[in-house]
């Protein structure tokens, strides 16, 4: 990713930030969607837009504490979700119903998430310019 072109200040031009929402719907392992979705966030952060992430369905497992992927032989990237704030991702919304359906509670989640009702996630979706499902 070293060959990315990062826009300079001259491109910012004081324009309003675009709202991007990432919706993580799938478990962190089993498919590559959440991992490559996370990679988009890490690159997009350099563009200083307004990025939000929401976790629904099996996507809530992306934020489960205490994951250990040693046996999988796959990189443990879930911990990166915990450190997205410096990248300008200020909100990690977790769907309460998805948690409850899986026997999870807020205590099972990594620090810094906001557990909300589906209606609140719907309201967040409604104000986005771009919604990217992973």
């Amino acid at each position: 990713m070293a060959d990315e072109n990062i826009p300079g200040d001259e491109d910012a031009g004081g324009e309003e930030k675009v709202k991007f929402l990432f919706i993580f719907k799938k478990a962190p392992h089993g498919t590559i969607y959440p991992y490559e979705g996370l990679e988009v966030i890490l690159i997009m952060a350099a563009y200083e837009q307004e990025i939000t992430a929401a976790f629904v369905d099996d996507g809530v497992y992306c934020l489960k504490k205490g994951q250990d992927t040693t046996g999988l032989g796959i990189k443990e990237f879930a911990k990166t979700f915990k450190v997205l704030e410096p990248y300008g991702v200020e909100h990690l919304y977790v769907d309460r119903a998805s948690l409850e359906a899986r026997g999870l509670t807020e205590e099972d989640m990594v620090a810094g998430v906001e557990v909300v009702e589906a209606e609140e996630i719907a309201a967040v979706i409604s104000v986005q310019k771009v919604v990217l499902p992973f």
């Binding site: 060959d3 990315e4 990062i6 826009p7 675009v18 988009v40 690159i43 997009m44 350099a46 563009y47």
Partner: peptide, 10 residues
């Protein structure tokens, strides 16, 4: 790169 996807979104 993914920057191009960002530009498309913007």
């Amino acid at each position: 790169g993914l920057g191009q996807l960002t530009e498309l979104g913007i």
